[in-house]
Amino acid sequence: MRILIVGAGAVGGYFGGRLLAAGRDVTFLVRAARGQQLSDRGLQVRSPLGNINLDRVPWVQAADIQGAYDLILLSCKAGQLPGVMDDLTHAVGPSTLILPLLNGLRHLDALDQRFGAAHVLGGKCFVSLDKLADGTIVHFNERDDLSFGVRAGHDGAQVQAVADALAGAGFTAQLSPDITQEMWEKWMFIATGGGITCLMRASVGDVVAAGGVDLICDLFEECSAIARRAGYPPREPVREAFLQVLTQPGSALTASMLRDVERGDATEAEHVLGDLLARRLPEDVETPDRSVLRLAFTHLQAYAARRRREQP
């Protein structure tokens, strides 16, 4: 199976690196600067589950794509998706499957419209990663779950071939019977974690120490109400597990969005918080004028406005 990994950032570099180290036929689609970095330094991943050091890393730019791929693992940022879809014009053939690992759900509509729903799987990953300035990818914990599943009109044998290609590659890969439910649940989790740690500019443990558990729970319940009305309420074991993580005293957990803010980078606030807020009705929150979700999103929008003003 020919696999194209779109992006060699934290997520793409981690899962693509694991697949490449396991002997899969992997090529990275990257910009010239990242490609040169991969040629000069290779790909390094520091992980408690085992480091990866690859000297030879196949990569390509969009203009040089030759022929369609069997599987495209999409790991770009939400704001990059329109350009990435243009880049994939010659990589998508009649039997290509696209597995997006973006946050939220808005990207599915864009991919369906561009390539057809039969080409687009549902997917999500749970992994805490960052990419350093020198290109090294750092894995912060021992979790690296990737789930994917059928949304509509996919050939069962073709999807099973994807499962076989991802199996045994050094990370946990699971073919989910209900991937849309899992994507909604992850969305609730990252919206809560990202919203609260960015709003407070602090880790989960710091927010708990400041007496903010009620704000964390209010934000999670607000996100859950939106999911519930959409037909995807969080399953009770998942809800309990998420709240345990999000209210853990002493936890050093922060969202990748907070790391983006601290570096002065663009964030995925619109895709993660804004889209969720846009789906909310007044009855989804007891006091709409005191919505923690709206406050967190406004905070990040103000950050973005200041960033545009100071870095035109």
Rank of each mutant, 00 (worst) to 15 (best):
V92Q: 05
T197Q: 13
S256L: 03
V292S: 07
N53H: 13
R229A: 08
P177N: 14
G250A: 03
G194P: 03
A62W: 01
G211E: 11
L166C: 07
Y69H: 15
F28Q: 08
G153V: 13
E268C: 13
A278Y: 09
G264H: 02
L246K: 07
M257K: 05
R235H: 01
C217F: 06
I196E: 09
D25M: 05
A78R: 00
E240W: 00
L101S: 14
L276F: 01
D206M: 14
D145I: 15
I72V: 15
Q36V: 12
A21S: 02
A173V: 10
G93E: 05
Q301Y: 05
P94C: 13
Q80Y: 01
V60K: 04
E270D: 15
T197V: 10
R201F: 07
Q61F: 06
E142Q: 11
G153Y: 11
A21P: 01
L97T: 05
A169D: 05
K186A: 09
G135Y: 02
W187E: 06
G205P: 06
A22E: 02
L54Y: 07
G212Q: 04
L215P: 07
G274D: 05
T298M: 15
L199Y: 00
T89S: 14
G156D: 15
K186V: 04
Q44V: 01
V238N: 00
L243G: 11
V162I: 00
S251T: 12
L71F: 12
G264M: 03
F126D: 11
G104W: 10
R46N: 09
I72P: 03
L276I: 04
D178T: 06
I216V: 15
G17Y: 05
M257R: 00
G42E: 10
T89K: 05
R239S: 04
P312R: 10
V245G: 02
Q160T: 06
I190A: 01
W59I: 03
L71S: 07
H119A: 13
I137G: 03
A133I: 12
I3R: 01
E182S: 08
R307W: 09
A33E: 14
V261D: 09
T192K: 08
R106Y: 04
S147H: 09
Q160Y: 13
H299G: 06
D214F: 12
D144P: 06
Q244G: 13
L215C: 14
G12Y: 10
Q66L: 13
A252D: 14
D109Y: 12
S47Q: 11
L4P: 11
P288A: 02
F189P: 02
Q160C: 07
A165N: 03
V84H: 08
G9Q: 10
H154D: 08
S128M: 13
P94Q: 09
G264F: 00
A117E: 00
S95V: 10
A173H: 00
F242P: 00
N51L: 04
D206Y: 06
F126P: 07
E268G: 07
F220K: 08
I65C: 01
A269I: 09
I216K: 10
F28D: 14
V150R: 08
R41D: 02
C217E: 11
V162F: 14
D178Y: 12
A152E: 15
D289P: 04
H154Q: 04
L105H: 01
Q37F: 02
D164K: 02
D289I: 08
D178C: 05
D155W: 10
G104M: 01
Q80S: 13
R259Q: 04
V238G: 03
I65Y: 09
D284C: 15
T287Q: 15
D134L: 11
D284H: 15
